[in-house]
Structure formats: C-alpha cells, structure tokens
C-alpha cells in the first residue's frame, strides 16, 4: 500500500513537471541549463510521434508472437516492402490513401502466405522458424535492392495533411511582449493520431469482439481453443494478416514522415525487437509503452548527446532486462 502511494505520487509529480516544462515560459536559468524550450518541445513531440510509428510496426510483431510464438524477423522487410509498394501505387494512381490501402492488403496477403507456407509446416519449432525468417529477410532485402535500387524515396504528403500547425505552446516571449508559439508539422501529429487510433482499434478488437476473444484464448492455451471447436488455423492466418498488414501500413505512414531506403528494414526490425523486449513479448499495451519509451529515448539522445544516442536505447533495454527479464508488461 505504502509503495503504491509512493509510485502514484511519483507519477503525479512527474506529469506535473512535464506539463510545466511544456506550457510554462522557461526562466533563464533553465534555458542556460538544458537549452532552448523550442528544442525541448520539438524533441518531445518528435519522440512521441516516432514512438507512434514504432508502435504501428511493433504491435503487429508482438501480436503475431503473442498468439503463435512465431518470431517473424522478416517483419522489417515487410515494413520496407509496404513502403515501396505504397509508393509505386501512390505514384501510379496519384492517391496516397489508395497506396496506403494497397500496401496494407498486399503485405497482409504476403503474411498469410508466409504463415501457410512456412510457419504452419514447422509448428512448435521456434528456432527454426526464426532462422527461416532471417533467410527470407536476407533474400527480400537483396531483391528489393535489385528492384528499387539504393535510391531514397520520399512520398508526397497527402492533401490536407500538409504544412504546420501552431500549437498553443509559447516558446519565448519577445522583448516587445508578443508571444512566439511553437509550430509542428501537421502530418506528424496525424501519425500520432493514427497510432493511437490503431492502438484503440486493436484493444477493442482483442477485448470486445468474438474473434478477439478467440485470439486471447489462443494466447493462453492454443490446444484448448482448438479442442473447443474453433478453427485455430483460420484465427492464426487472420492474426498474421493483421500483424503483417500493420507493418506494410506503417511502411507507407513512416515512409511519408521520414523516407524509405535500403537499410530501413533493419532499423525498424531493431526498433520492433527493442520495443517488444522492453514492453514484453506478446503484449500490445507493452508495445505501446515500449514504443513511447524508445521513441523518446532515441529523439532526446539525438538532440542532446548525438554520439551516444544509441547507448540510451541500449541502456533502457538492459535496465528492463535486468529488473524484469520478461519485459514491462510481459508474462511468462
């Protein structure tokens, strides 16, 4: 009881400090200590939106693992392939949203194929499944390099999401007394909104629908679910399709926020790995917490101590593993 009170107190104090940092006009000593307020707020927003993007990628990864115990190390390749396909379709049709839909569907179908052709054939042999997906990601990376070369692609931001919004956050007050507000790209805020929407959607799907109930039952006891008359393979294929599709979806969303190029597959695979290790394998809530932590750590690292930014991510991972080897929300 005592400990809990302390934790709650800590959280409240932290939240209050954060809100003060965001909304108050910074006094001079604080600016001297950690730099301009604009840098801080922009970094914070960058971190949160990057966390949203990481959540989109990692939630599919963790969903697939939670139900089927399949570690799909080709997940990063699916992200990149989704980005490329979305780009091609968006270029051809001129509609970004159509590209997004096609990327989701194509990658979802490729996920089903992977599940049927590979994972179903070696069920229960986790290590071998992992190795197979490594093989697939090697080939996929090389073939994508052959088709789309080493060029960096950049989506056109879709109509209506262009430009910057003025946030109700004052960065400094000019000597004339006029406040300067902080601006932030509209599209990045949308990414955050989409991530939150997907997170809520997944929660509703898993907790409030019949199929979601089957999925949760499958996570707890696969054999028992099959014994009670559910076509488990169908549920598996569906979950794999959603998980893979989310990676393709994230490929377009992330490719627009940043860019798509060879090597991004590894970057997002690393992000997914660290996010689910920190958050706990198989937990969507854990993926959200982990994604937020890693996104913030990465951006604050880049802004405040660039040469050691990766170390911060790494320290978080090691710290979590040392205290809770199963991850923050993980269960064994």
């Amino acid at each position: 009881m005592q400990r809990r009170t302390l934790v709650v107190l800590g959280v409240v104090l932290f939240a209050a400090a954060l809100l003060w940092l965001i909304f108050a006009v910074w006094p001079d000593w604080l600016i001297d200590a950690i730099g301009r307020k604009k840098t801080f707020v922009t970094t914070l927003l960058n971190g949160v939106t990057l966390g949203g993007l990481y959540f989109l990628v990692a939630s599919g990864f963790t969903l697939v693992f939670g139900l089927m115990r399949n570690v799909n190390l080709a997940h990063g390749s699916m992200y990149l392939l989704g980005g490329y396909i979305g780009y091609e379709v968006a270029e051809a049709t001129g509609s970004w949203f159509f590209g997004l839909a096609v990327a989701f569907l194509v990658i979802a179908v490729s996920g089903i194929l992977l599940q049927v052709a590979i994972f179903r054939r070696m069920e229960g042999d986790e290590l071998r499944q992992t190795l197979v997906t490594i093989g697939i990601s090697i080939i996929a990376a090389d073939l994508m390099l052959a088709v789309w070369t080493g060029t960096t692609y950049q989506f056109d931001t879709p109509e209506g999401l262009y430009g910057a919004v003025v946030l109700p956050v004052i960065s400094v007050i000019k000597s004339s007394g006029a406040p300067v507000f902080i601006k932030y790209p509209m599209y990045r805020l949308t990414v955050l909104g989409v991530a939150v929407a997907v997170g809520i959607g997944l929660w509703v799907f898993l907790n409030r629908t019949r199929v979601g109930m089957m999925v949760r039952a499958g996570v707890n006891d696969r054999e028992m679910l099959a014994a009670s008359g559910v076509n488990v393979q169908l549920v598996f294929a569906l979950v794999f399709a959603i998980g893979a599709g989310l990676a393709g979806f994230a490929g377009v969303v992330g490719g627009t926020a940043l860019s798509i190029a060879p090597g991004e597959d590894i970057r997002y695979l690393l992000a997914s790995l660290v996010v689910v290790i920190v958050g706990g394998l198989g937990s969507v809530t854990g993926a959200a917490i982990g994604a937020l932590l890693i996104g913030l750590a990465e951006q604050f690292g880049l802004a405040y101590f660039p040469t050691y930014a990766v170390v911060l991510t790494f320290v978080i991972m090691v710290g979590v593993l040392a205290i809770r080897p199963q991850g923050i929300m993980g269960t064994r």
Binding site: L270, L273, L281, F314
Partner: peptide
Amino acid sequence: ISARTEGIYTIMITLAIAVAFFYFVRQ
C-alpha cells in the same frame, strides 16, 4: 544480459545488441 532468457529471446536480444553496436560505432 541474455542468459536469463531462453531460445528465441536470446536471438532477439543478441540481435538487438549487435545492431545497436553497429549504430553506435557509426555515430
């Protein structure tokens, strides 16, 4: 770091460490 976990967790953690080291020496 990784020995408290088993099987695929070990692969994931060591892969994460390897990639993190790569990005670290590059930065």
